[in-house]
C-alpha cells in the first residue's frame, strides 16, 4: 500500500474503533431534523416545502461536528509533526484525511438523508436528486471544513471558532444543493445545479488541500 492509502486506512480504522464519533454525527443529523416538525408544526405541506432546505442545513451542521478533531487529535499526540516531516506532500495528507473523514461522516449522512426526507414528507421526485446532490456536495463540505480545521489547530475555543470560519464558505454548496432538489421536485432543469456542484467540488478538490497544507505548516512551525 502506498502512503496515501495508509493514512486513509489508519483514519478509517481509528474511526471504526472509536465508533462513537460517526454515530454521534448521524444521531445529531437525525435528531435535529426531527426537531423541525416539532418546531414548525406537523402540517405536511409546509414540511414538504422546507424539507430539502432543512435536510441540507442540518447536514452542513452535522458534517462540521467532527471536523474539530480532524487535525487537532494528531496535533496533540505529535502525529502531525511526523506527517509534516514525512515524505508524502502535506497536500496529499490533507486530501487523505479529508477522504477518510468524508467516508466516515458524509457517506453516513447520505444514507440517512432519504429516510429523513420521508419523515418530512418530501415528494418522491426529489429523492434521487437529494442523494446525488449530497454525493457531489458533501465532499466539498468536508474539504472546505478541512481548511477550517487546519486553521484552528492549536486555537483556543476551536469548535465555535471553526463554525464561524466555515459556515459562510458553505453558502454556495447549500444554495445549489437545495436548488437541485427543489428543481427536481418542481420539474425544472436540475442539470445546471449539478454541474455547478460538480464545479465547486472540482475547485475545492484542488484548492482546499493547498490552503489546508499551508495552514498546517503554520501550525507546526
Amino acid at each position: 500500500m502506498n502512503r496515501f492509502t495508509l493514512i486513509v486506512a489508519r483514519d478509517l480504522r481509528l474511526a471504526l474503533r472509536r465508533g462513537a464519533d460517526s454515530t454521534m454525527v448521524v444521531a445529531f443529523f437525525v435528531l435535529t431534523v426531527v426537531l423541525f416538525p416539532l418546531g414548525v408544526g406537523p402540517d405536511t405541506a409546509i414540511l414538504a416545502r422546507i424539507g430539502p432546505g432543512v435536510i441540507w442545513v442540518t447536514a452542513l451542521l452535522a458534517s462540521m461536528l467532527s471536523l474539530e478533531r480532524l487535525f487537532q487529535a494528531d496535533f496533540e499526540d505529535g502525529n502531525l509533526d511526523l506527517l509534516v516531516l514525512g515524505s508524502l506532500p502535506l497536500e496529499a495528507v490533507v486530501l487523505a484525511k479529508s477522504l477518510a473523514h468524508w467516508l466516515t461522516t458524509g457517506m453516513l449522512l447520505i444514507v440517512a438523508a432519504p429516510v429523513l426526507a420521508l419523515l418530512l414528507n418530501m415528494s418522491a421526485e426529489g429523492f434521487g436528486a437529494l442523494v446525488l446532490a449530497m454525493l457531489l456536495g458533501t465532499p466539498s463540505l468536508t474539504l472546505i471544513g478541512a481548511v477550517g480545521a487546519a486553521l484552528t489547530v492549536g486555537a483556543r475555543r476551536g469548535g465555535a471558532l471553526l463554525s464561524l470560519l466555515v459556515l459562510p464558505l458553505y453558502v454556495p454548496v447549500l444554495i445549489f444543493g437545495v436548488g437541485a432538489v427543489d428543481a427536481a421536485i418542481s420539474g425544472m432543469a436540475m442539470r445546471p445545479h449539478f454541474l455547478i456542484l460538480g464545479a465547486l467540488l472540482a475547485g475545492t478538490l484542488v484548492l482546499a488541500p493547498l490552503a489546508g497544507a499551508a495552514a498546517l505548516r503554520q501550525a507546526v512551525q
Partner: peptide
C-alpha cells in the same frame, strides 16, 4: 504571530470565495 499567519491563509481563502458566494447568492 501564529494568529496572524492563520489569518493570512483564511483571508486568501475568503477572497477566492467572495466571487463564488456573490454569484451563488445572485442565482439563489
Amino acid at each position: 504571530i501564529r494568529g496572524a499567519k492563520a489569518g493570512a491563509v483564511l483571508a486568501l481563502v475568503g477572497f477566492v470565495n467572495i466571487p463564488i458566494i456573490k454569484f451563488s447568492v445572485d442565482w439563489w
